[in-house]
């Protein structure tokens, strides 16, 4: 019997997800033994035409990382969907839009302006030349993929079977997923292939926090040296652990936590949560100023909340395109 065929592709991403595959280390040899890698532009020389030449559903599983922000990415996502039995959104950007998704607080015009415009401090562009989809040159027409106004998650463009979350996905989760695919033991379509409970469930610092959580001072991680043992949130350092599933490590408190950094939410929310940011707003606002709330004036509450300088950016760091509002209204 022929070996299952596997494709890897990257869209709007940083390359960290490719690293996450390489980080399988020796395990990758086991994978290569069991499957044929038929497409992996980052690592091997394949052409898009190779994929176009395949039969529909010829690829057993395509791992697509990165968000969708250009025509090319959208086209390749559709192509891989057509040629693959399973599509797995690999990593935070393809799962929820990720860091590139923060571009949804602007639009194409403002992004081009700040990247190529005259006010951009790192560009000398007096003629205000901006990339065009079609440029005419004496030799003919040059085409560039169109840049979208809004960044999307993979499932906002194509049908996605499973998600492997994280920025970047922990190798053990990838191995587990590959194992499940090869064994044909996959859960319900649409499942995020990671634990269902939030990070606090495994966080070793969870025991240090008081039963009654009440915050008054919010501290930014850049301004303090965090206690390496105490719950960040209880200390007033915003941690997205309560609204983010565990899974970034299979042992201990989680990758960022172990490095004494609060959780930033790259693994995305537990299954019942549709919008990470708004849930965090509700949870956090509930405990900020809880003590003595009955004696607080509206101005005092405003003041407390003003400690959170960029709530949208903080709470939607990895999930803006996948949020209920998806992007900023520019007007």
């Amino acid at each position: 019997m022929a070996k299952p065929k596997v494709a890897f592709y990257w869209c709007a991403s940083c390359g960290g997800c490719e690293e996450a595959i390489v980080d399988l280390n020796e395990d990758i040899l086991k994978v290569v033994e069991l499957v044929d890698i038929v497409f992996w532009p980052c690592a091997m020389d394949f052409k898009y035409q190779d994929v176009r030449n395949m039969k529909d559903n010829e690829i057993t599983v395509a791992f697509i990382n990165g968000a969708i922000r250009t025509d090319e990415q959208e086209e390749m996502a559709n192509l891989l969907r057509k040629k693959s039995q399973l599509v797995i959104a690999f990593g935070a950007c393809s799962h929820m839009g990720g860091i590139p998704g923060l571009a949804n607080f602007w639009d194409k015009e403002t992004i081009f302006e700040s990247s190529y415009g005259k006010d951009c401090p790192s560009v000398d562009n007096p003629d205000n030349i901006v990339p065009l989809t079609i440029s005419s040159v004496p030799e003919g027409e040059l085409k560039l993929p169109a840049f979208h106004n809004t960044v999307k998650s993979l499932d906002q463009v194509i049908d996605v079977d499973y998600y492997i979350p994280g920025c970047s996905p922990a190798p053990y989760l990838t191995m587990k997923a590959i194992g499940a695919i090869l064994a044909g033991e996959l859960p319900k379509k649409g499942t995020v292939l990671a634990p269902e409970k939030s990070l606090c469930d495994v966080c070793e610092r969870n025991e240090t926090k008081p039963e009654k959580m009440s915050l008054t001072k919010i501290k930014r991680i850049s301004e303090v040296i965090a206690d390496p043992e105490k719950c960040f949130l209880a200390e007033g350092i915003i941690c997205l652990g309560p609204v983010t599933i565990a899974g970034c490590t299979n042992e201990g408190s989680g990758r960022c936590i172990t490095a004494n950094m609060p959780c930033r939410g790259c693994y995305g929310p537990p299954p019942k949560i549709t919008d990470v940011g708004v849930k965090m707003i509700s949870a956090l606002a509930s405990i900020i100023g809880l003590e003595g709330e009955e004696n607080m004036s509206e101005e005092e509450v405003e003041q407390l909340m003003s400690q959170i300088e960029d709530p949208a950016g903080y709470f939607y760091r990895f999930s803006l395109p996948k949020s209920l509002l998806r992007r900023k209204r520019m007007n």
Partner: peptide, 9 residues
């Protein structure tokens, strides 16, 4: 408190 933080967002 929730609505104040929400409005900011």
């Amino acid at each position: 408190r929730r609505i104040i933080l929400l409005k900011k967002t």
